[in-house]
């Protein structure tokens, strides 16, 4: 079972990379997405579709193939995680390798849900598969550990709850980060910047659509993250006798929580520009990455057994 899981992870990474290439082909040769400008025209006006150039059928096929490859990779990803869990006889997020697998799986899930809701965001698949395949490749190459039971400290049903919530929230924040970054690129492009990466902005959806998606994804992830931190505190009380220990992982979870709280507050403050709020979201993702890689690989603390 463990071996099957490892092979499936390779299949997953390859599918995502191929999907990424297909997205890139669509991105490079396809036309701009269609954008409703109804709101700008004003009340009662006809709906106007703005279209720079009609997408070629080749590009369209590439886009469809990309989605197909993503779904295929996703299925392999899901089965890889499930077989890993069966092989270990426990929830498949007991170490960093499994955590990254789980978080990226949630990320791709969220992305597929977003895709069914906002079809025109398909281009963003390029960036989602990019981030997912980079993270999975890191997991497979440097974080891999063979299937095994857990250290005594992790023998608790709180593992399922606390780490499950943290991985889920991380996966959703990942998609939120992609949306925020796209929003910033599109904004930069709208403001006349043409150098990389703003040059990518031309084919992205409208800034306010991206911005609203950013907000909704974060508003969805934040309570899950909050719940994860609270569940961690309850577990810590049972495991270490104290609900909050200012362990490096806790510190960075707290920092990420504060930064995302900042994002939500800034978002609801009209005087703060949407450019700044999206930057705060990007900063939030940076703290998540520090928490995942920086803390696990550099700092030592109470969470160290979860290490690599």
């Amino acid at each position: 079972m463990g071996g099957l899981s490892n092979q499936l992870l390779v299949v997953t990474i390859f599918s995502y990379v191929l999907a990424m290439m297909a997205y890139a082909i669509e991105y490079a040769f396809g036309g701009r997405s269609l954008i409703a400008r109804r709101a700008l025209i004003g009340a009662g006006g006809p709906m106007v579709l703005e279209e720079a150039s009609p997408p070629s059928s080749g590009a369209r096929n590439a886009g469809i193939a990309a989605v197909g490859l993503t779904v295929f990779g996703y299925a392999a990803h899901l089965v890889a995680l499930v077989t890993r869990g069966i092989a270990a006889g426990r929830a498949p997020w007991g170490n960093m390798y499994e955590f990254v697998m789980m978080a990226t799986l949630v990320g791709v899930t969220v992305w597929l849900v977003v895709l069914t809701k906002w079809r025109n965001l398909r281009h963003l698949g390029l960036f989602v598969t990019l981030v997912a395949s980079i993270l999975l490749a890191i997991a497979g190459m440097t974080l891999y550990v063979p299937v095994g039971p857990l250290v005594p400290a992790l023998h608790s049903y709180w593992l399922v709850i606390h780490v499950g919530a943290a991985a889920t929230a991380s996966g959703i924040f990942l998609v939120g980060f992609v949306a925020a970054a796209m929003h910033l690129i599109r904004l930069g492009h709208d403001n006349g910047k043409r150098n990389f990466p703003y040059s990518l902005g031309e084919r992205l959806p409208q800034a306010d659509v991206l911005e609203r998606a950013t907000f909704r994804i974060h508003a969805f992830a934040f309570p899950i993250w909050t719940f994860g931190v609270i569940a961690g505190a309850i577990w810590a009380e049972a495991a270490w006798g104290r609900y909050w220990n200012w362990d490096p992982k806790e510190v960075w979870s707290f920092i990420a929580w504060v930064v995302y709280a900042c994002y939500l507050h800034a978002r609801s403050t009209p005087s703060v520009s949407r450019r700044i709020t999206s930057w705060i979201a990007v900063l939030g993702w940076a703290t998540m990455i520090v928490n995942l890689f920086g803390v696990n690989l550099v700092a030592s603390g109470l969470h160290s057994y979860a290490g690599v």
Partner: peptide
């Protein structure tokens, strides 16, 4: 004001960092 609250929130996040780097 909200601006001050946001600044303080950020400061709180930054001020928490040394505790994760240095032993406590």
């Amino acid at each position: 004001s909200m601006r001050t609250a946001l600044m303080l929130l950020f400061l709180l996040a930054v001020a928490a960092i040394p505790g994760s780097v240095l032993p406590q």
